[in-house]
Design a protein around this nucleic acid. Structure first.
Length: 741
RNA sequence: GCCGCUGUAGCUCAGUGGUAGAGCGCACCCUUGGUAAGGGUGAGGUCGUGGGUUCAAAUCCCACUAGCGGCUCCA
């Protein structure tokens, strides 16, 4: 007979099996009323369950409740409500579009839920249907139909699903039963059961179904649950958007329509969320970037290629100056290298064969093309000769790495090869060549070569996104060539740099991933001992950051472990910014060495690191972080002088000149607007300081201050004092606008 | 790359088969005003590109191109 442990440690014993709802009722009527689910632990870990779950053995329980008014829902409560809302939305869609819409998979997400579905040919779902779907969802919620769970033996349930002709549900059922799929075939290994929760569920020999109402009479769906007790407990739900998704995320498989929705306990909370989305859109770096004229993308220049306009260029330049000064302190040396290199170089590095499809096409010499053309050769022949490697190179690479990237049919004698150049996808080959250009003693190590190096990658067109995903970008790159013993200290130094940058910019909302090797894979280069040491160094360095980080086995590059910094944009998408990667491969490929204390050559270890990642992406994220209101040191325009009338224009000009002489970025608004109008314009442009000057100020050699974010006149102060104040603020890279009379 | 949506003035957008519109911005004029837009006049568009249907296309159809939202990918 079950003994049930409550969250506070109290125990309750019952002499008969009991439902979670009854447990709630035994604690209090208010709890029973608010309950929408339960987290039960039968000793195998906590799992969310229906309130109707029968408890027939010892368990600990936490009742999940709907939030009180004005209270935020717990993640568990939202999970239950949204998972349930997905069913309601699916029913509504089938009512609006047609019963022949086939449902596939509908889980909750961080911000709501989605349901993937197959819409038969001839039918269509579009945003025009949203009003009707929303209306139908509201009706179903209002009807307050119970979510009724029932189970069928696996074979029986499967037979029934097969007779219904929905292969997606058959597939779901087969996977729930632990059977191989009879309907889904793919070259790719089957993904693990998609599961957005950390909750565990066991494979059972039966299948569970949920009817929204009475089984057989109302709408129902194969589902493992759990759900809220009845539809009215969902609160407020809404369909949000349409997208496409592949079945099993497999691009060679069926394309499904993914319908996104969200649900909140109350209409007010849903409205607040929608409002928040609207606000987030205003922070979008693409919107602010245009409004503040920070960057431009021009169709005629090309997709994914950023033109830094004067305002954006100031921000970038300030950031680069900032980081360059930190690099100097850490003993880096700066280098400059070209944006292209010979194909041979990237064949040596392995980039060309390995990442062929995500690079710009090679630049082939005109003479070669003409020769081939005159000889009647095809395009395929040209490609073959461009992509092939010399015997010498193939030997070299195979010897050291067993390189899988060169196939024997692509090895050609030198006179068969077509040479060419490539836009560089990475800076490391150039830096490796600089390292190799002079001999090195262990006494010189580490050698730290830094460059704001622009690289070009052929990103898929559908991936391009403002400044955050582009085809040409500048890494704040550096390569540290060090001895094995120096790896830990150098990784530590890289993280210190990242920490300084993030702290200076007030960026706190990021996460850290430590990518480790997959213990079951053999694709990695470098010795096991080196990997052990490097992984330990990465973990130790990450621990020293004082920030939560995740260890991610299998996420290492094939050439070494790495540490990535990831931030979210305003609409919740994650972007990788800074990265630190340890590389055991490159030094081999380029045959790099230094002379050790034993007077023999040794292989250096290479660390790739870019604390910002790319200037483009970093600035994009930074625009959103500050919502365009940059601290003074980064602001394209730091001060604007606003004369009250044209009578004070001359003094305004003097003020501007004095500020410019003090290295402050400043302009004066000498138009014939009234001062209210000039303030509005300057405020819209998010300029940190407005100096309003009239005859009174001119007489006293003073300025009246108005700081961004302060909706009033702060009073007047002597011009010289203002200049001293703002210079200090800029020099110290202060986050706040602090110059006051 | 794939699916869906979108492309009209510098920007934000209205215009569903019959002479191209608004607000903001811009230019000029009046106003000389002490803290989030005083007033007026004017310039500015081969309606993303190319085909097609039609007496007639910004509008309907097709293709391309670019952007947006997802998916897949990301050294």
């Amino acid at each position: 007979m079950p003994t049930i442990t409550l969250p506070n440690g109290d125990k309750k014993s019952f002499d008969h099996p009991i439902t979670a709802a009854q447990v709630a009722a035994s604690i209090g009527a208010g709890l029973a009323k608010a309950a929408i689910g339960a987290k039960l632990d039968f000793g195998d870990g906590p799992a969310l369950r229906d309130l109707s779950t029968t408890i027939d053995r010892d368990a600990s329980i936490a009742i999940i409740t709907a939030p009180k008014p004005n209270q935020a829902a717990t993640p568990d409560a939202l999970y239950l409500m949204r998972h349930s809302a997905a069913h309601v939305m699916a029913e509504a869609i089938q009512d609006v579009i047609g019963k022949d819409v086939q449902l596939a998979y509908g889980p909750p997400t961080d911000t709501g839920f989605f349901y993937d579905m197959f819409v038969p040919a001839g039918k269509k779902i579009s945003s025009d249907h949203f009003d009707a779907i929303n209306k139908r969802m509201a009706e179903i919620i209002k009807e307050d139909r119970p979510f009724t769970r029932y189970e069928q033996p696996g074979d029986e349930g499967l037979k029934r699903l097969k007779s219904e002709g929905n292969k997606y549900k058959v597939d779901n059922a087969e996977r729930a039963l632990g059977l191989p799929s009879s309907v889904y075939q793919s070259a790719k290994p089957l993904a693990a059961t998609p599961d957005t929760s950390s909750l565990r569920h066991s494979v059972t020999p039966s299948l569970s179904f949920y009817a929204t109402g009475a089984p057989g009479r109302n709408w129902e769906d194969l589902c493992r649950g759990p759900h809220v007790p009845s539809t009215s407990r969902i609160g407020a739900a809404r369909v949000m958007s349409l997208a496409s998704a592949y079945w099993h995320g497999d691009e060679n498989s069926d394309r499904l329509i993914r319908v996104y929705g969200t649900a909140f306990p109350t209409q007010e909370q849903l409205d607040a969320y929608l409002n928040q989305l609207e606000e987030a859109k205003k922070r979008d770096h693409r919107v602010i970037g245009r409004a503040l004229r920070l960057f431009h993308i021009d169709e005629d220049v090309g997709q994914g290629l950023i033109l830094w306009t004067p305002n954006g260029s100031i921000i970038r330049k300030e950031l680069q100056t900032f980081i360059a000064s930190e690099l100097k302190k850490q003993g880096y040396t700066e280098v400059f290298t070209p944006h292209i290199g010979r194909l041979e170089l990237y064949k040596t590095s392995g980039h060309f064969p390995y990442y062929k499809d995500s690079q710009f096409a090679p630049i082939v010499e005109r003479e070669d093309l003409e020769k081939l053309s005159a000889a009647g050769r095809t395009c395929a022949e040209m490609t073959n000769r461009v992509e092939a490697v010399s015997e010498r190179l193939a030997r070299g690479i195979n010897e050291r790495t067993g390189a899988q990237t060169i196939t024997p049919d692509r090895i050609k004698p030198d006179d068969q090869l077509i040479e060419g150049f490539m836009l560089r996808p990475m800076n490391c080959p150039h830096h490796a060549k600089i390292f190799a250009s002079s001999p090195h003693s262990y006494r010189d190590m580490p050698v730290r070569l830094a460059e704001f190096g622009t690289v070009y990658r052929w990103e898929q067109s559908g991936e391009l996104n403002g400044m955050t995903r582009v085809r040409g970008f500048t890494q704040d790159d550096a390569h540290l060539f060090c001895t094995e013993d120096q790896v830990a200290a150098e990784v530590q130094g890289c993280l210190t740099l990242v920490k300084i940058i993030f702290a200076t910019l007030g960026m706190k909302d990021y996460r850290v991933r430590v990518g480790l090797r997959d213990p079951d894979s053999a694709k990695y280069t470098g010795s096991a001992e080196s990997w052990d040491k490097a992984e330990a160094a990465c973990i130790a360095a990450a621990e020293s950051l004082g920030v939560a980080f995740s260890k991610e086995p299998g996420e290492a590059a094939f050439y070494g472990p790495k540490i990535d910094f990831v931030v979210k944009d305003v609409i919740g998408r994650e972007w990788q910014l800074g990265t630190v990667q340890i590389d055991y491969n490159m030094a081999n490929r380029f045959d790099l060495s230094y002379v050790g204390p034993d007077n023999h050559p040794h292989r250096p270890v290479v660390i790739h690191r870019a604390p910002f990642g790319s200037m483009e992406r970093f600035c994009g994220v930074l625009i959103e972080h500050f919502a365009g209101s940059f601290p003074t040191w980064l602001s394209p325009e730091q001060v604007r002088v606003l004369p009250i009338s044209e009578k004070t224009n001359e003094y305004a000009g003097k003020v501007m000149a004095a500020l410019r002489a003090a290295d402050v970025r400043c302009s004066a608004d000498l138009g014939n607007d009234r001062v209210q109008g000039k303030i509005k314009v300057a405020a819209d442009e998010k300029i940190p300081y407005m100096l309003i000057v009239g005859p009174r100020d001119a007489e006293n050699n003073a300025v009246s201050i108005r700081a961004r974010g302060t909706e009033k006149d702060l009073g007047a102060m002597p011009l010289e004092q203002f200049i001293d104040g703002i210079r200090a603020e800029i020099a110290e890279k202060r986050a706040e606008l602090g110059v006051r009379p």
